[in-house]
Design a protein around this nucleic acid. Sequence first.
DNA 1: GAGTGGTCTAGACCACGGT
DNA 2: CCGTGGTCTAGACCACTCT
Lengths: 254, 254
Amino acid sequence: MGTTQLESVQEPKYWHLKTVLSEALDSDFAVGEVLPNERDLAARFGVARATLRQALEQLELEGRLQRRRGVGTTVAPPRVGVAVANAQHGWSGDADEAWQPVECTVGAAPAMVATALGVDAGETVHVVRRIRATQGQAVAAELLYVPASSVPELSVIDAASGPARARGLLRELHRLELDGQDRSVELGSARADDAKELDRLPGAPVLVVTTRYLAARSTVAVSVATYRADTCRLTFGDSGALEISHDAQERKAS
Amino acid sequence: MGTTQLESVQEPKYWHLKTVLSEALDSDFAVGEVLPNERDLAARFGVARATLRQALEQLELEGRLQRRRGVGTTVAPPRVGVAVANAQHGWSGDADEAWQPVECTVGAAPAMVATALGVDAGETVHVVRRIRATQGQAVAAELLYVPASSVPELSVIDAASGPARARGLLRELHRLELDGQDRSVELGSARADDAKELDRLPGAPVLVVTTRYLAARSTVAVSVATYRADTCRLTFGDSGALEISHDAQERKAS
DNA sequence: GAGTGGTCTAGACCACGGT
DNA sequence: CCGTGGTCTAGACCACTCT
């Protein structure tokens, strides 16, 4: 019989742990329920806390768990589908999208944004800060960069920052006729300021949606929106598609 | 003078480390260059290896670094923009999209997919496996679920799996007239099989793109594609937009 | 103050890629 | 074989939330 080789095909412990926990989550826990604390769980599974944490981290990344310092680890609800502005539509913030302007300043655009806008690096542009909420929860923080040339009616001098001015600027933008939009999605980690708005720790995983708004053959604005990757599923409604939120993921809640 | 309080506003070490490394990457390293190994780097910064690794992990998540066991840590090239099928277009795999069919089997669709397709849970459907490559690198692995009712010409019995059969099935699909598509993007971690195809470790962060193909008021197919989150930036070309890849990110290469 | 998750340490061994 | 990143341990202390 010799050494009993217990089918350890060298699957890492944390990976196996994650699987076990995932199944337990499906069968034995309801959404919102709090798990035992990390020290207990680690002891229960006979691993070091760091190892247990590696498994929890993965599950949090997948949107299965939610961890809050000083509180505990809870079972996360299914991800919410957030609609990213539909094709023909135009400026987000029109209907029920729940973007809320927070601030409006002027400043230098980051190099990447500046080149996309076709302005000189370091040139000052309008910067609108907006927060998007769904079901009472902040899900995204956005920075909208608008070169002065796109909104000639607005004087750059009148730097009365604040929501009021932000709304004024957005009103101006709505008057532009858009030819279309360019959009890209990538993984990032939350900057300190975004993290604060999203009620997460700095470095939390986010989906960065970069949008170029096009009008009259040129880019009139660039938006960089960071969505909480743990709680959001970005949805894109194409042409004639009947937008059905398949939240019918029905995870057992016994 | 007492305790000198050296401006530590309790920024975590790994966070500060990440910032320092990020700047060093911009100024002192060229794409593809290999960094010193983790033990050296940790010693150089006077931290434990685990802490150094936490910083590297973040940078890898942001697509700045690439780490390979047995080889080392190298500076990653800018993320490649991968176009997710455009609105009017139809089935991906038409033009230069470089999807390569690998396999075609029949099997039970996962519960989530089954409900989206409107078939009974556990009902067997066609499953096509495809890999997408860009510039010689595999960037995505896809599972395409097609209920038998969508391709009546194909007999389910003839289970000659393999690329040939996959191509046959795709040919049938192309004959369908699509009304549109529903698409969603979310963060996930690579399953073991996907990880293998993508040359990553299991659990690696991926962008999961779920697409419902709609024809004649119903869903004729569902695709679940997992893109490497570290190397990909998903791009969505909307209506009249002039698709310009702004790869002009110009990161210094001194 | 008690209890939680977040950070950090200083080790150890393993799996893998090249030589 | 050696050097690399990947996993794991058993502690410690800190920051936060709630009571």
